[in-house]
């Protein structure tokens, strides 16, 4: 029984090394893929993760006046940093960035079928109107993109992923509250 246990550990390590040395060569439902996703966790700070930061800027119109574009997720993050006991503020922007990323991916893969038809967009719209703006507005303008830092010039470039200006009342809610 003890030797069998040693063998299990040996196979576990051997298979992990094999998966580590053959990345991207495992089918979606194979044991290799499962190991890749669950056993060999990480890396968490990859180059792509540290080179760009996502931002969603929101502006809204009330009585012909547009508000300035604000990144509410970032504002909440800064609020957490100043008051670290406000844990909720830390993850507040995560949801809107997660949904925005999904919309961006749909656009990239040409799967985005319009603002009203996309479940992700309806979720984002409902979240913004009810949670972020929390008031009756005529129009909403969204700009989502990535800040890319360029170390050579010490400048930051903004790459727009999507930009929409629309009437939020014509977008059906994603969930009934």
């Amino acid at each position: 029984m003890g030797i069998a246990a040693v063998l299990v550990v040996f196979l576990h390590i051997l298979f992990s090394i094999f998966v580590l040395l053959t990345p991207g060569k495992h089918n979606a439902k194979s044991l290799g893929k499962l190991y890749n996703q669950l056993v060999l966790l990480g890396p968490f700070f990859t180059e792509s993760r540290i080179k760009t930061s996502p931002h969603l800027y929101i502006s809204f119109k009330v009585k012909d006046t547009w508000s300035p574009f604000v990144d509410h997720g970032l504002a909440n993050f800064k609020s957490y940093c100043e008051h670290p006991w406000r844990y909720g503020k830390l993850h507040y922007g995560d949801f809107e960035r997660y949904i925005s990323l999904q919309i961006g991916e749909q656009i990239r893969h040409k799967e985005f079928k319009g603002m009203g038809s996309s479940r992700a967009f309806r979720e984002l719209n409902q979240f913004i109107v009810q949670e972020v703006i929390s008031r009756q507005v005529d129009s909403v303008s969204l700009v989502y993109g990535l800040n890319v830092y360029l170390p050579e010039t010490k400048t930051v470039r903004f790459d727009t992923v999507f930009k929409y200006t629309y009437n939020p009342s014509v977008i059906a809610p994603s969930k009934k509250l």
């Binding site: 580590l20 060999l40 966790l41 990480g42 890396p43 968490f44 700070f45 990859t46 180059e47 540290i50 080179k51 930061s53 996502p54 931002h55 997720g73 970032l74 993050f77 922007g93 960035r97 800040n147 830092y149 170390p151 930051v156």
Partner: peptide, 27 residues
């Protein structure tokens, strides 16, 4: 895995990674 990934990355080996991190506004 994290260490290996960093070792393979020129951005990490050169230390520029921390310059990038400094500009990650949401982190």
């Amino acid at each position: 895995i994290s260490g290996l990934d960093k070792l393979m990355s020129d951005t990490w080996r050169s230390g520029v990674a921390f310059d990038y991190i400094r500009h990650l506004e949401v982190l």
